[in-house]
Design a protein around this nucleic acid. Sequence first.
DNA 1: GATGAATGAGGGTTCATTCAT
DNA 2: CATGAATGAACCCTCATTCAT
Lengths: 209, 209, 209, 209
Amino acid sequence: MEKNQVPSTIKDEALVEKRRQQMVKGAVTLFTEKGFHKTTTREIAKASGFSIGTLYEYIRKKEDVLFLVCDSIYERVKERMEASINQDEKSVANLILAIRAYFHLMHDMQGEVLVMYQEVKSLSKDAQDYVLQKERDMVAMLEKVIKNSLPFSISEEQVTLIANNIFVQGQMWGFRRWILQRTFTLETYTEQQIKLLLQGLQVEEKELT
Amino acid sequence: MEKNQVPSTIKDEALVEKRRQQMVKGAVTLFTEKGFHKTTTREIAKASGFSIGTLYEYIRKKEDVLFLVCDSIYERVKERMEASINQDEKSVANLILAIRAYFHLMHDMQGEVLVMYQEVKSLSKDAQDYVLQKERDMVAMLEKVIKNSLPFSISEEQVTLIANNIFVQGQMWGFRRWILQRTFTLETYTEQQIKLLLQGLQVEEKELT
Amino acid sequence: MEKNQVPSTIKDEALVEKRRQQMVKGAVTLFTEKGFHKTTTREIAKASGFSIGTLYEYIRKKEDVLFLVCDSIYERVKERMEASINQDEKSVANLILAIRAYFHLMHDMQGEVLVMYQEVKSLSKDAQDYVLQKERDMVAMLEKVIKNSLPFSISEEQVTLIANNIFVQGQMWGFRRWILQRTFTLETYTEQQIKLLLQGLQVEEKELT
Amino acid sequence: MEKNQVPSTIKDEALVEKRRQQMVKGAVTLFTEKGFHKTTTREIAKASGFSIGTLYEYIRKKEDVLFLVCDSIYERVKERMEASINQDEKSVANLILAIRAYFHLMHDMQGEVLVMYQEVKSLSKDAQDYVLQKERDMVAMLEKVIKNSLPFSISEEQVTLIANNIFVQGQMWGFRRWILQRTFTLETYTEQQIKLLLQGLQVEEKELT
DNA sequence: GATGAATGAGGGTTCATTCAT
DNA sequence: CATGAATGAACCCTCATTCAT
């Protein structure tokens, strides 16, 4: 289950990679502006810098573009998260680091993430499952950091709940931007959410180093 | 800015109301299953129990159906929330009551809410503003309850943040059902979120009556 | 297995019948001139006297037009043959009558028959079977007449062979028109083929009344 | 009017010949399976064992492939017929020999012949004339044998008619295979047709040696 | 000579919307 | 008021053909 779920008639794999990057970049902009359905394949081709014919050398169906976009988003999210945090370090500081990194990421990828959430249902069942799995992986990452960072143990359930809370709070920064970004900056938003969370976990300030 | 944003050629207002209820009911089901774009006007007409010609006596454009759906959703949400809570009562118990009522509501309206979030961007700018305002009203309601329920005062900012957290946690129960409803029942989910919240607010258990 | 193998969104059955007649008429001309593949659906619509949108209210796919054409051809062939001959009369004269009627028919429907033979393979397997069956019915009709008309008995095999010979000789008049219609008129062609056949069957001239 | 109606950019004529043989072989299979129109040039290239670019070094247009196929078919038919019979021998036996050879040939080339008949109209007028001429040559060959083989004289017209009958009866074995090859083997089919023909010609059995 | 990436005209089909009945 | 046949703009996708390497 890889991105070569989407076959191409082009043999040169490096070229396929390059063209698809162009495609994803152009498509994200368009999907953000008008949504998947109102974006035409010709527009995607144009925004990607090639002709409609060429577009279809690299995908089979319009839906494939959406899949490629979703795939690329999670790939980038995963990359950046893995670069930012240490999943195995055992300290609350690491959890805070992870949240900051994640919120920051969600800030940078507001458009992409919004697109993904509004359009996944246009994917085939299979593709949806694939994307959902990536999301689960992401949440699992957060769960691991949470477990490792707490000096005392909490139930699995609670870990799940908190991980999901953090996950959607990150997305919410982009989804509900019209409301939140009027009151908060990314920094104040991040710090206040962290504070609320730690209080909820009853972790003393002093325990943070 | 009311639902008569959507004009009809029919004079008999009671009939208009009745027909539109049929429409919304049929449309929600269809939109839930296939999304707004993949649902045709003919399907909406059929599901509503009348002909395509008749459908267009009660709306101008397909988008109007979506607007009517969104409007109806918020109408029902507002009604039920107002019936369930007392916005002016000053006690933490009232907040807990409100959260329970809201989560329960989100549970009952999973399909509708999901549709709304995935399709609002298909509305015209004006209609989007209208729906967004309804959402703001809803959040404002939560903010009021939060402020009234706390025995000590917290900053406006924090109230906003908490209200938004509660708001999306309610939606999240439906949005992320594939993950959450595997681990929690609506009750365990609700109670754990409440617990986490109150700890975050550092409200002592005993303060609840 | 009827012509309502091809569903229509139009409810008024009489209208469906009428529009499809227009369609078949227009399509046969076009198919004769340029073949099925080189004829566009827009051309069919135009030749039928309605818009492309209307065309698709009466069919599902372009292939349906071809099916309707084939179906209509055999329907007309069958009608005319049944009107011209008496399947149960026991005389050689009746066979001669049948051949004359059939050749005459093939002459009148040269275009249609040619189209059918050149394009059937563009039909789905199911539709092909349906058309093939109609053809078999037609041959069976000839076989019956042959059997009834001979004063002595011949083998089943020979009946089949002769029926098939007559069948393709009729079509050949249209298929090979560039060669045959230079040498023969329909009448001389018919009479010579009849003569050859009867000699082959060793039926004495005098036996014909 | 030769096969070099189809120009090639390649100078090496032997190579052109070789590549075109590969092409025709691959194309016949494809055309038989899916017809000319539903076969893509890429498929032809692949089946021929070279790239699409190379294909176009040996032809100008897709239609050229069809022409080459038709040309090759008649070339092979002519070759084999000339090898099998003696056009100048004056005996009924020779006619019988010719028919047997021709039917046998049509049996071996069922696919090819069918393709040719269903797709010729896709050729340009010029190419059609060229193919038609080859067909006329073939019929003329049969006419010559018929005339030479009869001990008494019959009219030109009748010769034409009989030649055409034989010609289509040979094709019919392939065209109507679903019906005929259920009842006959190639041998029984051939012998019965010969018998019927000779009776039609009122040639006594004993006259055959 | 051979390759295969690029092109874009053009085809089949859908569906929101209208309007005569 | 209700109906449903008619319309055509617009969309997705294919594939013959070219040309730089």
